[in-house]
Design a binder for these strands. Structure first.
Lengths: 190, 190
DNA sequence: AATCTCATCTGATCACTGTATAGATTAATA
DNA sequence: TATTAATCTATACAGTGATCAGATGAGATT
């Protein structure tokens, strides 16, 4: 994005998110730097600060963008509720694999502005989708449903974060997790 | 630890791990710095490098120390296998709460030397303990057992990492997760 | 069409960081 | 006691995040 002939970039925030995610995917979180992102976007070192305030702000922007994409991918509508829950979890795993830059920061809550309204909104969407689907798979009271959703969501996140999914087994272990949670939810609610 | 009258510190590696974990607990991962750790330990800025090689090395040291402590806490022997599995998960949660500095880096695989032999050894211990306990709770073949362990381990990790545990509900949701996994494991193996 | 306004971007500066190197100090060993 | 090895210090360097005054130009107002 360094090929720019105008003084104003035109779409710098988006470009910074894109280049930032690329840098994260390439070099990892430890080597992330605002200056390198600015370099890749072809702007001055101070430019990113004007849009995102700080490094923390840019990371939050990348995470927010990631959650928006994740929610899109998780909007599955085909099959039974349980099948859809499985599909959502698989979509989560696929997203983490295909967008490692975004995934590298989306759940690093300690590095983000957790109070950022846009971040809160986007990060809630995917979780809410899964919760709604589980509710259809196994009717239960709000408390139990909340427990089940958190357990499954956490399990999927953990599987990805801890690299505990061999590609070969990925579908199988996700099915196991979904079955375990849905079955327990049904048993609890009867 | 700045009150030192000898040229040699005597136990600098341990002190660096302790001060490093303290810094992480206080200021968080984003504000972690080798120099600040050296300052708190009362040594020159370059001293930590001689023991841990780099910042990554020190973080790996802190993580390794954390896993050693975690394995100790998870060595529960009382009750039925399922109860013990629950106790192990609760121990995990308690550790994360009481030692936030250690917990902040233990699962940040991207920031650690994952090949470090000591790290591999210590980080395997707790997981192996849980696996062995699950095996007693619900006999199953190796593949299914592995899936179940990974699911539960991931779920507990996720619950902690994503701050999805309200203190009030912590025990309840952990019981839910353990029951779900153990029940599914039993069903699978029959 | 000319002017104004203000968001956007630059360039320079500051304190701070991780790491490398050479040398000082002390512990261990023979 | 003399020698070796381990430990720690002091200094230096390049790279970092953040701040600030000022340059630029796109769009609204007149």
């Amino acid at each position: 994005m360094a090929n720019r002939d105008t003084y104003h970039h035109g779409a710098l925030p988006q470009a910074l998110i894109r280049e930032g995610a690329g840098l994260l995917a390439e070099k990892g979180l430890a080597s992330f730097s605002m200056r390198e992102v600015a370099r890749r976007a072809g702007v001055a070192v101070a430019a990113p600060s004007h849009h995102f305030g700080s490094a923390r702000g840019l990371l939050t922007g990348i995470a927010t963008d990631g959650f928006a994409q994740l929610a899109e991918r998780m909007a599955t509508t085909a099959g039974s509720p349980e099948d859809r829950a499985s599909a959502m979890c698989r979509a989560y795993v696929a997203f983490a694999k295909e967008c490692p830059g975004h995934a590298a920061v989306m759940f690093q809550l300690g590095l983000l502005n957790q109070e950022d309204p846009a971040f809160i909104q986007q990060s809630s969407r995917a979780f809410a989708q899964l919760s709604a689907t589980l509710a259809k798979a196994a009717p239960a009271n709000a408390a139990k449903l909340s427990q089940a959703t958190r357990t499954l969501w956490s399990a999927v996140h953990g599987l990805v974060a801890l690299k505990m999914l061999t590609p070969k087994e990925a579908d199988e272990i996700i099915s196991f997790a979904v079955r375990a949670v849905v079955s327990e939810l049904r048993r609890d609610s009867t």
